[in-house]
């Protein structure tokens, strides 16, 4: 096997590796696209907010002050102690929005990476091996798709108890099926292509075929699906938390801020407007970036 990997392999030339020049070209494409740049800037802002929250935030996200109760945002009030206003417990909304980015982004990256990895591996195994393993994996997928994912997520959250890691498990469980289906379908298609057959002919084993020839060719599709899933994860996490099933206070989250703000909609709409705006801008950013990635990687799908 070691001898094999060291032989120059003609088939690898068909694979498009993520080379430095590839990245540079991608960045150049990004700069030229209004859609891509808008998305990148919005996502970049969200990441920046999450990373810089401890430095930038004027208050602790959980510290309460009587003075800050329902404090008005800067454009309604001359004081800038609470730039985006205060909530019902006198917590600073700007600080909470900044810290809230952490929970949203952490869950969205973790869930998507794990769901994509697990789903892709299972899908590839199902497609490559066929037989009993394929049946087993794909029947599990069928099974899961027949239950509304919110019901499944609610049951999983009930079993594990609410909290960050329970939300992670519930969402990853809901999403891996998409990757399994995508990758299995692509595997069945690609493994019959001539370059894979020729690699097989010159003696590449199953594992090498899978990791060197088949999977790299779907990385783009997986990446596009993953980006669009991230948008879904942020919305879904916020929804679960809004319903009281997700991440629990005192962790500052956008979903929880909205569920509190809803009770003071008339008197203090800023309690709703700012976390709501944060969610929308982040998700719009991710969706634009995902759309752009799809246009770039697969021009034939440009209009999907």
């Amino acid at each position: 096997m070691t001898a094999q990997t060291s032989t120059p392999d003609a088939a690898t030339t068909f694979v498009v590796p993520a080379s430095p020049t590839g990245w540079r070209r991608l960045l150049r494409d990004l700069r030229r696209s209004t859609k891509g740049m808008t998305g990148a800037i919005l996502v970049g802002l969200a990441i920046l907010a999450a990373l810089s929250a401890p430095i930038v935030a004027p208050h602790q996200p959980t510290s309460q002050a009587v003075r800050g109760r329902f404090a008005e945002p800067f454009f309604l009030d001359s004081s800038t102690d609470y730039p985006l206003g205060g909530d019902n417990l006198g917590r600073d909304i700007l600080s909470r929005v900044l810290y809230g980015a952490r929970a949203s982004l952490a869950i969205c990256f973790l869930v998507t990476i794990v769901a994509a990895a697990v789903g892709s591996v299972l899908g590839a195994v199902a497609g490559f091996r066929g037989g009993v393993i394929d049946t087993l994996i794909m029947r599990t997928v069928d099974l899961q798709l027949s239950i509304p994912f919110i019901l499944l997520a609610m049951i999983v959250l009930a079993v594990l108890g609410p909290g960050f890691w329970s939300v992670f498990v519930a969402l990853a469980l809901a999403l891996w099926v998409n990757y399994a289906r995508l990758v299995r379908g692509e595997t069945l298609r690609i493994r019959e292509m001539e370059y894979v057959l020729s690699a097989r002919t010159i003696g590449a084993n199953e594992r090498r075929l899978m990791t060197k020839h088949v999977l790299p060719n779907m990385l783009h599709s997986i990446l596009v699906l993953a980006t669009l899933d991230m948008a879904f994860v942020i919305i879904f996490e916020a929804s679960l938390t809004f319903l009281g099933l997700g991440i629990q206070p005192p962790t500052p989250t956008w979903g929880y801020m909205l569920s509190e703000g809803r009770n003071y909609l008339q008197e203090s709409p800023w309690m709703t407007v700012f976390p709501g705006g944060a969610i929308i801008l982040t998700v719009v950013g991710i969706n634009l970036l995902g759309d752009w990635l799809r246009d770039t990687f697969d021009p034939s799908l440009r209009n999907r």
Binding site: A231, I235, A238, S239, F242, L258, G261, R262, L265, T272, G276, I279, I280, V283, V284, N287
Partner: peptide, 9 residues
């Protein structure tokens, strides 16, 4: 990009 519950509110 807008969560349903936010739109509802």
């Amino acid at each position: 990009s807008v969560p349903a519950f936010l739109l509802g509110i």
